Amino acid sequence: MPFDILLVSILRTLVEVAGFALLGQGALAVLAGKYREQNAFYRVLRIVTAPVVRSVRFITPRFVLDAHIPMLAFFLLFWLWIVLAVVKRHLCSLHGVAC
Rank of each mutant, 00 (worst) to 15 (best):
Y42K: 02
Y35H: 11
R43M: 07
F63S: 06
N39A: 06
A67I: 12
F63L: 03
L65Q: 08
E37A: 04
F74Y: 14
F78E: 09
Y42T: 03
V52W: 02
P51V: 02
L77E: 13
R62I: 12
R57D: 02
V53W: 02
M71L: 15
Y42P: 04
S55F: 13
R62L: 13
L45D: 01
F78K: 13
R43E: 11
D66N: 01
L77S: 10
E37Q: 10
F41M: 10
A29Q: 15
P61C: 07
L45Y: 01
V56C: 06
R57S: 11
A73I: 00
Q38M: 05
R43D: 03
F78A: 14
W79N: 15
R62V: 14
L65H: 08
V52Y: 01
L31I: 13
V56L: 13
F78I: 10
H68M: 06
A73M: 07
F41I: 10
R36N: 10
L72H: 10
V56E: 06
P61G: 04
R54D: 04
V44A: 08
L31G: 11
T49K: 01
L28C: 03
N39M: 00
T49Q: 00
R57N: 07
P61N: 09
F75D: 11
A40P: 09
A50Y: 05
V56G: 08
F58Q: 03
L28P: 04
F41D: 08
T60Y: 11
P70Y: 05
V64T: 07
F74D: 10
F75Y: 13
Q38W: 07
A67M: 02
I69N: 11
E37G: 04
L76V: 12
G33E: 11
L76E: 07
G26E: 12
G33H: 07
V53F: 01
V44Y: 04
L77V: 11
R36I: 02
R46I: 02
A50K: 11
A29W: 07
W79I: 13
